[in-house]
Design a protein around this nucleic acid. Structure first.
Lengths: 180, 180
DNA sequence: TTTCTCATGTAACGCGTTACATGATTAC
DNA sequence: GTAATCATGTAACGCGTTACATGAGAAA
């Protein structure tokens, strides 16, 4: 449900088209959607029906028309209210931990190899997050505080994966020292 | 899809019924499903059709029959293969961060109150995780290493929320010192 | 010549959630 | 008398994903 507000948020930053939103979501590691048309375009239709955004058509030569959406006063107010909504605790899907639950059947070296593979996949994900944070693209910076907030959002994601990496290292150390 | 293997995993630990599985999943903070009947019972049917589990009916007095599922050799092998599957990086849903993206519209004290509310919700979640880890219920302990693995799984979840709590504290400190 | 980019949209499917359904026994 | 527990199952719905569809121009 919150993709509606993510879309509205970006439109509140700059008027943009569904295609622009699709690129932003696809390029982002932190926005965890696959940027499928179905959701984005239907969200825009609903936002427009609700009067939260207005729509203008930008004609182009040699390319399809762009449908540009701009936030309305009503939309800005709805976004403001949503921002004040009671925060939800994060929910994390860690399929690897469900795998680990039954991993005592593995030999020491097999288990270590599995943990190494996990380390690599988490490390790779963190690497892309760092690249994204460095690029500073698609990031509003309308005030120093807003810049700080966005930096902290990136710090949050990177730190979360850093915690995971440290946990893996700890576990590999323990397993090689105490459980072989 | 992996709920199938979570179910199979628990059956590999001890023969049990759909109702037992439902209780385990409902009681667990780390197993992030809502323990709805639909998924559990249909998963059991599929596991049985695949020959990964066998089924016996335990008659009871004054209560409905229990359908007890036991893992088969074929099922144990399938679980073994799944455990060796290439690990996936975790994916975290943090709707609060999507809210924060557009939170520069808030006054300093409003933003601080929002962060405090987030701190409380994350803290509460972590508290329940700690309680679960202390209970040591529904936890196989067939070897010292298996016990270590399960302890580390709990450590992982608790640590993840600890990281989040530290991040919130840092942000509140920064905002009160530098951005008011 | 095939593939990619720009740009908008629709259709089909799967996983997960909520809610419904039954029926006996036990607790408040 | 109402609600909860034990126990298994079905139905309806929503969000998100993959894939399909069009059609022009630019690049490989």
């Amino acid at each position: 449900m919150s993709i509606k507000f993510v879309v509205l948020g970006y439109i509140s930053w700059q008027p943009m088209s569904g295609y622009d939103l699709k690129r932003i979501i696809a390029d982002s590691e932190t926005l965890h959607w696959t940027a499928n048309n179905n959701q984005i375009y239907t969200a825009l239709v609903r936002l427009h029906d609700d009067g939260w955004v207005s729509k203008t058509i930008e004609k182009q030569e040699g390319a399809p028309d762009r449908h540009i959406y701009t936030i309305t006063g009503k939309g800005a107010q709805a976004l403001n209210e949503w921002v004040r909504t009671a925060p939800q605790a994060p929910s994390m899907a860690k399929p690897f931990l469900y795998q680990l639950m039954w991993a005592d059947v593995l030999e020491v070296d097999e288990l270590d190899a599995l943990l190494e593979a996990y380390l690599n996949s988490v490390g790779e994900k963190q690497f892309f997050l760092k690249v994204e944070a460095d690029k500073k693209k698609n990031m509003p910076e309308r005030s120093p505080r807003e810049k700080y907030i966005w930096d902290m959002i990136h710090t949050n994601w990177i730190g979360q994966y850093e915690g995971e990496l440290n946990w893996i290292r700890q576990m590999r150390r323990d397993l090689s020292q105490k459980y072989q």
